[in-house]
Amino acid sequence: MADNRPDRRPKFRLPLEWLGILPFVTFAVLFLILPTMKIVVGAFQTPEGGFTLQNLIDLNTDSIRSAYWTSIKLSLITALLGCAVGFAMAAAVVFGGLPKRVRGPLLTFSGVASNFAGVPLAFAFIATLGPAGLVTLWLKTEFGINLRAYGFNLLSFWGLVVTYLFFQIPLMILIIIPALDGLKREWREAAEVLGATGAQYWRMVAFPILFPSLLGTFALLFANAFGAVATAFALTGPQLNIVPIKLFAQIRGDVLGNPNLGYALAFGMIVITGMANVVYIVLRTRSERWLK
């Protein structure tokens, strides 16, 4: 019987395999996608629920514009410096001829430091570079250097940059060391024997190969700094004008006087980190033509 009639059941069979990821999908929808959608939709809604662009237009005030600009600047600078210094340290360990014993501790320490963010990190920097901090006092008593007089204030933009670097640099080290390990010795030697100088090797071979990783890390560091609240909040309190702190204050007490303006503010954050990642993905696909 079964031989004569084609079995039709498979056609109507439920894709049971997909049930296996149902819990995960439910979780992701409820606690990641829906909340994000809520923000996105809310940014285009009036308090009554109608469609509007007014919230986004209302973002265009001096205070909010400068908050975005400061946040972008902060994220760009800490990501750039984090990448540069982290790369230098990673390269020093991988290629600099340093003893092998340095590597393990550096990786462990980077793991710790990249996770040592938020409130305690702010405390550590206040105790070090704050008005009564260790380094501040030491420079003052030993060398007569008054950091304040030189314009350095921990509770300012550059203070925040220095503090953010404490977790940005190690994150870079953690990600880039495996990438540097992936550079084969043969590539360097092949370049050298073909007459290339060290600089030519880096410019024409090593850097293009590392570029996707560098770019990815940069995007990650950017998002990492852009969304960080705790460190800045614990360091400067609510007064520093950056987007996440503004949003924090808005969520807590509707300081903007319009609940849906908060949606727009948050939507702007998603757009910026999202854009950073789109740029990253586009550049990456372009620079990875030579990969499988």
Binding site: F24, L32, P35, T36, I39, G227, G274
Partner: peptide, 23 residues
């Protein structure tokens, strides 16, 4: 799935929790 698991690195925590509060 991998894309979803990486989303929390892109969407700031403060935005996610803001969504929670309103949702």
């Amino acid at each position: 799935i991998e894309f979803i698991t990486l989303l929390p690195l892109v969407i700031p925590a403060i935005v996610i929790v803001f969504g929670y509060i309103r949702l």
